[in-house]
Amino acid sequence: MKKRLLVMMVSFLLYGCTYPTLDKAIEKSIPYDVHDVVLIEEVGATSIVLYETNANKDNFPQIDEPVIALAIFKGSDQDGWKNVGPNGWTHNDSDSFTMYQEFYYERDAQGEVTEYIPIYYGKLNNPNITQIITIDEDGHEKEAVLSEGSGGRYYVAFWDFTGLKGISKDGEIIDQMKWE
């Protein structure tokens, strides 16, 4: 009887926080009210979910419109889905766009990093921006993914870079942000 109870407790601890589908995991495990799922992107064995929610009025009384947030999930419909992300954000902003960043690390038993995903994302505030270009420290450029939600237009990039620029349909730089 004790052995059976121990097996049930261990099973609950290992699998108690998993959900049968990614949709159910999004619904049940994100600690904020999800208004709209803007983008689901698979990066290796990890699913990155961008969604719209409300800003915490105690911390951000000036923000009335929906804000973009991030959740990270591991799993499958066969094994179940688990929210492994930080469910938070750090941001920079300009009049043209915001920039949030998160870094997902998975480590093995020895503490070695087995998976690293840098995630940069934000909202496009300037309607004239049709493209976001990232720039790495060597000057190489790469286009970010754009997506639309009920609260606006957004971008996401899954690689490290040190700057980004918002480009118009005519190829003009509307705004740019750089950091070290």
Rank of each mutant, 00 (worst) to 15 (best):
I133N: 11
V145M: 15
V113L: 06
V38P: 02
I48W: 07
K74L: 10
M99I: 10
L164I: 03
D170T: 10
H140P: 03
D33G: 10
W81D: 03
I167S: 00
Y51A: 00
E41T: 15
K24A: 13
M1T: 11
D175P: 07
E112H: 14
R153Y: 08
T114A: 04
L164A: 02
K169C: 00
D136Y: 05
G166P: 00
G16C: 05
S47V: 03
E27K: 15
C17A: 15
L13H: 02
L124V: 15
V34P: 02
F12V: 09
V49R: 00
H35N: 12
M9D: 11
V34S: 03
V67E: 00
Y100S: 11
A55D: 05
D108M: 03
Q62A: 10
P66L: 10
P127C: 03
K24Y: 12
D175H: 11
G149Q: 11
Y154D: 00
Y19R: 14
I72M: 11
R107N: 08
N125E: 12
M177Y: 12
V84E: 11
K2M: 13
M8N: 12
V49G: 06
V43D: 11
I72Y: 04
G166I: 02
E52M: 01
V156D: 01
F60K: 01
E143V: 11
L6N: 03
T90A: 13
D160T: 13
G75C: 03
S94D: 02
G44W: 02
V84W: 03
Q101P: 00
L5G: 08
T18E: 06
K57H: 09
E143C: 01
K28Q: 14
N126M: 05
G152E: 04
G139R: 09
M1C: 09
I48G: 01
E115H: 14
I129R: 05
S96H: 01
W179F: 10
S150R: 14
K178M: 14
K57V: 07
R107L: 14
I174D: 01
N56D: 08
E65C: 03
T162K: 12
I26Q: 03
G88L: 09
C17P: 00
E112T: 13
E141V: 07
N125C: 12
S11N: 06
D93P: 02
G122N: 11
S29P: 04
H91G: 15
C17T: 14
G166H: 00
D93V: 05
G122D: 06
P118K: 07
D175M: 05
N54P: 05
Y51G: 01
Y154W: 09
G16I: 05
G163D: 06
K24C: 11
P31S: 13
T21E: 09
L70D: 08
V43S: 05
V49Q: 00
R153C: 03
V49H: 01
A109P: 09
I129P: 03
Q176W: 09
G75N: 05
I119G: 03
D79F: 05
Y32F: 15
N83E: 07
I174W: 04
K57Q: 09
T130Q: 11
Y154S: 04
N87M: 01
H91I: 12
F97S: 02
G151Y: 07
Y154P: 00
N87G: 04
M8A: 15
H35Y: 15
E42H: 12
D175Y: 01
K123D: 07
V113P: 05
M1N: 12
Q110D: 15
L6I: 10
Y51W: 01
A71G: 14
